[in-house]
Amino acid sequence: MSTLFDWFANLRKTEPAIQKQQEREIADGLWSKCQACGSLSYTKDLKANQLVCPDCGHHARVDSDERIAQLIDPNTWKAIATDIQPTDPLEFRDRKAYRDRLKDYQSKTGLTDAVVAGTGLLDGLPVALGVMDFRFMGGSMGSVVGERLCRLIEHATSEKLPVIIICASGGARMQEGMLSLMQMAKISGALHHHQANRLLYIPVLTHPTTGGVTASFAMLGDIILAEPKATIGFAGRRVIEQTLREKLPEGFQTSEYLLQHGFVDEIVPRTQLKKTLAQLISMHQPFHHLMSPLKMETVVEPEQ
């Protein structure tokens, strides 16, 4: 007996087939769909536009290797601190063992942990660059992220290089417990020595930059840049909403909100980022050799 309900049920069965075909076209990588406006662009064009949607200006997520290619002059990148790997110091297990989680993310991303660091030329200017990769456990900060960034900053201090860190992180990595919290202090300490030597540090805040990263190196720049419409904040939006039942203002915890409240120097579209960084770095180094360090500080030798 065929009823109206069967008719609806059959209708529903036929629907996914159409969607599947559309998905496959996107999965083939020829076309990419903008997450914000839904418009389709030719993937090659989108890449040429640094993954910024040509229709609505939405900044899609950039992987670390892609970001390095966008900022560093070809054939000048030299990665540092590649010889360290995360371990599982707490033998942490939630619904899944941390050890297994690490393996999964490593094979999925080809990365050892959530940050890549190195030196290279940016429009001909030597820089030390750290790039966080959100794909690796949400860019969370554990011992390796802390150590790698510290080695980068210490190297920059001894070589008198400016530091740029592209931030993208949910914050501390809970699976490493207090070891992870202490990375905030450790990196801030390295930045203190860098700053005391009158060297320039520019963090670039991208979507999302939250928690322990916001409460440490993301907010310690001499100049702080942000990508448009990135989520930037200390406490998670849901935490504030749920625990406090406060109504959140419009645009709360966005780049634009932070700019308005004085915590970000400028919002720079990705396509302008390299040019802007080069401009800032070249303006901040002409008289460097005439100046003494701010305080008597020991020069920190990078660990090798």
Binding site: M184, M219, L220, F234
Partner: peptide
């Protein structure tokens, strides 16, 4: 934990903590 509210975010909770972490090394 540090205060997690609209006002705290507006006044830069992250920046306030970050600044202390760095300055305490000096």
């Amino acid at each position: 934990g540090a205060w997690a509210g609209v006002e705290a975010e507006k006044l830069g909770q992250g920046e306030a903590i970050a600044y202390n972490l760095r300055e305490m090394f000096s």
